[in-house]
Design a protein around this nucleic acid. Sequence first.
DNA 1: CATGAATGAGGGTTCATTCAT
DNA 2: AATGAATGAACCCTCATTCAT
Lengths: 206, 206, 206, 206
Amino acid sequence: MPTKKQPQVKKVQATPDERRRELLATAAEVFAAQGYNATTVRRIADEAGLLAGSLYYHFDSKESMLEEILRTFLDELWAGYDTVLDAQLGPRQTLEALVTESFREIDRHRPAVAIYQKEARQLAGLERFEFLAESQRRFEETWLTTLERGVAGQVFRADLDLRLAYRFVRDTVWVAASWYRPGGHHSPEEIARQYLAMVLDGLAAR
Amino acid sequence: MPTKKQPQVKKVQATPDERRRELLATAAEVFAAQGYNATTVRRIADEAGLLAGSLYYHFDSKESMLEEILRTFLDELWAGYDTVLDAQLGPRQTLEALVTESFREIDRHRPAVAIYQKEARQLAGLERFEFLAESQRRFEETWLTTLERGVAGQVFRADLDLRLAYRFVRDTVWVAASWYRPGGHHSPEEIARQYLAMVLDGLAAR
Amino acid sequence: MPTKKQPQVKKVQATPDERRRELLATAAEVFAAQGYNATTVRRIADEAGLLAGSLYYHFDSKESMLEEILRTFLDELWAGYDTVLDAQLGPRQTLEALVTESFREIDRHRPAVAIYQKEARQLAGLERFEFLAESQRRFEETWLTTLERGVAGQVFRADLDLRLAYRFVRDTVWVAASWYRPGGHHSPEEIARQYLAMVLDGLAAR
Amino acid sequence: MPTKKQPQVKKVQATPDERRRELLATAAEVFAAQGYNATTVRRIADEAGLLAGSLYYHFDSKESMLEEILRTFLDELWAGYDTVLDAQLGPRQTLEALVTESFREIDRHRPAVAIYQKEARQLAGLERFEFLAESQRRFEETWLTTLERGVAGQVFRADLDLRLAYRFVRDTVWVAASWYRPGGHHSPEEIARQYLAMVLDGLAAR
DNA sequence: CATGAATGAGGGTTCATTCAT
DNA sequence: AATGAATGAACCCTCATTCAT
């Protein structure tokens, strides 16, 4: 039984949604490589194989492309995080799962993560990007709570400034997007394992 | 009664060199806050209390301001690092001293560090900024050697991918420039101590 | 019970000619409301319920729509004027009939008249719109002749600069298109009567 | 006795304010000739002898130039009208003075008046141009009151629809800006006299 | 007939930079 | 040293128009 009777067309025609995604992927790549401000809309168009003006058939503005890229990434990130949090694991397992999930997201959305890292602070001021600040608040709360639970349960050290520790873990993980290359030596899970080894047990030999 | 013998001028006149430094400090602050590309030369001039055109009496171009900011920072950074390295300490003490020195540099050159973090990758391509890549090479070599010595001497764990560990420490330290505020709760040395506690011994309770 | 013998079609299908007229009416409305230049072809399409590109099946260009609108209006205007002129009335009756006819045209072609008022001067330069200048010449000649006949026959005052008087009457009548709304308080004939009262006998009480 | 000791410079240097006025005069001329929308900022610059970008040293935007042109005109218009109204003349003299004043304004601000005539309706929608609607309200009130006083005092005919009469006078006067050329055959006062003769006593011989 | 996607020629605006004063 | 005015290149975006489907 044929799955669907599809007319055999010479050229595979992308659905409008696929086209959008393609273009956004291209844009994200360029934004990540050159920086949002330094990226011209022409450059994106060149890379995507059409003219600058044509992008405006698909998107309202350069900024709206950026917004959609970041929003899509954050939506998926939180879907992943929420799955982890809903499992109600102990603090150490939660931390491990969140870190692992983070590296998976870096693997899937490297350009978006890189853009986020570089531009979030300035964008947060714009009304249109308020969701960034909102996400950051949830992020901080999630991590701090996990760390606090761990300290209370004596699985994490008690002699640390927790806000420092939070920033330590957060930055440690996400900056990886700036050098990570999908399809490289290590899988996201392998990198996560190594990072967790360092973050949890330190560099020093015992 | 004047306590200091100052040249009797109507207006306290800065030397040309001091003026340069003032202007560069202002520029660095703005570059760090808004990003290099997003910063207009006029904005710097506003902040410094003169007109955009007047900056060109002091500097060749916007780019040359950026170059001077980064060069000054890296020169001082390497002066500090070289002092540490010349002391020929053991690997663990070297690592501790380098981290502490790094936080001191962040304290003294926060805007420059923030700019460096954000822009170095794109700038590295320009001929004029080749010194960035050069610095990065020395940096990597210094840290990797220290880590290797530590592994060889069994003060650092042997089960780690050293390049990953290098990036881990590097990022861990420098990203701090993005949130560090001089004159805040913690002195650079205090922050260094906390970071070292985490980096060396991890978050997990023993 | 059908009152009219209509061709039995599933959907009441407009003839191609009717469709054209509909689209032109829509276009005229938008041109009049927003100005020709400020009107986008897409806006017209929106208003007409199709996509911008589809208009080009019916018309060659935006400009050709404008041309057809103005041409249709002027053709009908001159048909009316010619009927009046052919009647060979006395100068005062001619003036009255022309004014009345003008208000009738405003009633029937308000958008076209409004467009004409606003755009004729700039369009006159374009080769394609030479018929506007031609019409204006005939218009001026018609009115001036009528006024001169009236002065000669002592039904109009002799102490006026006739070119000024011509412009006075012309403008007086046609600017009304900018505020006239069909189906309002006054019929075209009623407005014509009032205007004629003012134009012929003035505002001052006797 | 010299009025002011001015250094004799080769090139007469315009004050910043004079430069602004020059540029606005040029812009007004072009706006009037081509229509606001059809005018490119490059064209204005050409006409003024500088580059398009240079206009932005003097003005915020094309729209702000338009605003300043219209505002300046309306301010002066109302200064003139207020002088007339403050004199508290009888209704007929008031009407005569207002019409005369109007033609004087057309003489001094012909481009601004032409622009006003053509663009006011669309602009009124924009917040920035609310002063146009405000002016229009005062205008209508001023004229209607004058006409009503005249009817009450039996110097104007009682058999007219006053709103129609108002529009009649208003349009009659202002459309003149579309053909008036300063320095032509008639002075503004002469044109006003002729117009008043027609408006008050009509075209018909007595 | 109509759609959807693209084109390409500008148009308004920004901004680093220059230079006579 | 600094100003004020201008330059010119580039940028984001709009829009009339085209054309395969």
